[in-house]
Computed example of a mutant assay.
Amino acid sequence: MRKNTSLAEGTEGLVYQCRLPLSSATLDLVSGLVRAHLKKIRSRWRKLPPGRIALIVLAVLRHDQRLSDMAGGNGVSASTVRRWLLEVIGLLAAQAPRLDRALKKIARKGGVVVLLDGTLVRTRRRAGNENRANYSGKHKAHGLLFLALTDERGNLVWISAARPGRSSEITTARHNRITTRLREAGLGALADLGFVGLDDDPDAPVIVTGRRATRGHPLTDAQKEANRLVSRERAANEHGFADLKNWRILTKVRMNARHATTLLRALLVLTNAEVHR
């Protein structure tokens, strides 16, 4: 059977357009990083100018555009767009703050508490021995676990490295030494019931969670009211995750899992450039 590869009459050179709901400041930020990087490595030329490269990468991140679609519309190859994507998210991730510096910055501004929570970023199902590692029994899906800290208004300040989806939030928090970092900065944190037992100093806790009922010990009215108070104060944390997941590339991460940490930290920088409460 012969395959017809000819274009319909009048469609030569047509490319569909879509709106990119990002500020010009975000585009300037990314294009400025690309321009500085090219100057640093003394690159003589690229197929497209830094502004166009930034626009293509932002479209992939925001709308989860396929690389081949963006490549065909801009006269480059899909491998070139992939290289630009990895290059730009690496430049952005380098701007993300470290945990200790982020906490000290909040303390200098007079903050007293941060909000701690975890989220699962879904990924493709992996084959072989790595299949079960990324399967989360809690969410019944394959993904990578990330912890995040926000300030009291819901602005993201830090994101952890990726952990397999089967990891628990409390184990991931211990791996990142969050309790120690909070004490060093003189801050406290509000967290959900998934972090009960994380603080190893019950006499002077820095992580405040609700109370969990057991079969033989139901919660009292005072404990229920305390749980509602913690939940109300933690609501801003959900806004931070919602802002982060507006980047549709996180709907299902298709890139290699080793790039997921770099991707999330790059999106943290872009989210903070777009949203500041």
Rank of each mutant, 00 (worst) to 15 (best):
residue 115 L to V: 08
residue 84 W to N: 03
residue 99 L to Q: 02
residue 110 G to V: 12
residue 102 A to E: 01
residue 102 A to I: 03
residue 94 A to E: 03
residue 118 G to V: 04
residue 119 T to P: 00
residue 109 K to M: 06
residue 87 E to H: 12
residue 123 T to N: 01
residue 117 D to R: 15
residue 118 G to R: 13
residue 97 P to Q: 13
residue 121 V to W: 02
residue 115 L to S: 02
residue 127 A to S: 14
residue 86 L to Q: 11
residue 106 I to C: 11
residue 104 K to G: 06
residue 97 P to C: 10
residue 119 T to C: 04
residue 95 Q to I: 05
residue 119 T to E: 01
residue 126 R to M: 10
residue 88 V to T: 09
residue 118 G to S: 15
residue 121 V to Q: 12
residue 99 L to H: 02
residue 122 R to N: 07
residue 92 L to K: 09
residue 129 N to C: 10
residue 121 V to L: 14
residue 114 V to H: 10
residue 122 R to Y: 04
residue 100 D to K: 10
residue 132 R to T: 11
residue 104 K to N: 12
residue 85 L to K: 09
residue 87 E to R: 15
residue 114 V to N: 04
residue 110 G to L: 06
residue 88 V to E: 00
residue 128 G to F: 08
residue 95 Q to C: 06
residue 127 A to E: 14
residue 89 I to D: 00
residue 109 K to L: 09
residue 123 T to K: 05
residue 131 N to G: 03
residue 89 I to Q: 12
residue 109 K to I: 01
residue 98 R to K: 14
residue 112 V to D: 02
residue 83 R to Y: 07
residue 107 A to M: 07
residue 96 A to T: 02
residue 128 G to Y: 04
residue 86 L to C: 09
residue 100 D to F: 00
residue 102 A to N: 04
residue 85 L to V: 12
residue 104 K to Q: 14
residue 125 R to Y: 02
residue 105 K to T: 03
residue 108 R to T: 10
residue 106 I to A: 09
residue 110 G to S: 05
residue 133 A to Y: 05
residue 107 A to K: 15
residue 118 G to D: 07
residue 83 R to L: 08
residue 91 L to A: 11
residue 112 V to S: 12
residue 91 L to S: 07
residue 127 A to D: 10
residue 113 V to E: 06
residue 84 W to Y: 06
residue 82 R to V: 09
residue 97 P to L: 13
residue 97 P to H: 08
residue 82 R to C: 15
residue 88 V to A: 05
residue 96 A to G: 04
residue 126 R to A: 02
residue 121 V to T: 14
residue 93 A to P: 00
residue 110 G to F: 09
residue 102 A to D: 01
residue 127 A to L: 12
residue 91 L to N: 08
residue 113 V to F: 06
residue 128 G to N: 04
residue 104 K to P: 00
residue 111 G to Y: 07
residue 133 A to M: 08
residue 103 L to F: 05
residue 115 L to F: 04
residue 111 G to P: 02
residue 130 E to P: 02
residue 116 L to T: 07
residue 103 L to I: 10
residue 83 R to G: 05
residue 130 E to R: 15
residue 123 T to Y: 01
residue 111 G to K: 09
residue 111 G to N: 08
residue 89 I to C: 09
residue 114 V to R: 13
residue 98 R to N: 05
residue 100 D to M: 02
residue 118 G to L: 09
residue 122 R to C: 07
residue 98 R to M: 11
residue 85 L to T: 13
residue 130 E to Y: 11
residue 129 N to Q: 11
residue 83 R to T: 11
residue 133 A to E: 12
residue 113 V to M: 14
residue 115 L to E: 01
residue 120 L to P: 01
residue 86 L to W: 10
residue 107 A to Y: 08
residue 109 K to P: 00
residue 99 L to Y: 05
residue 113 V to R: 13
residue 101 R to L: 15
residue 95 Q to K: 15
residue 120 L to G: 04
residue 86 L to E: 07
residue 98 R to I: 05
residue 108 R to H: 11
residue 104 K to E: 13
residue 129 N to W: 10
residue 123 T to E: 01
residue 104 K to C: 10
residue 128 G to K: 03
residue 100 D to P: 01
residue 125 R to H: 10
residue 121 V to M: 13
residue 115 L to Q: 04
residue 109 K to T: 05
residue 107 A to V: 12
residue 108 R to P: 00
residue 92 L to T: 06
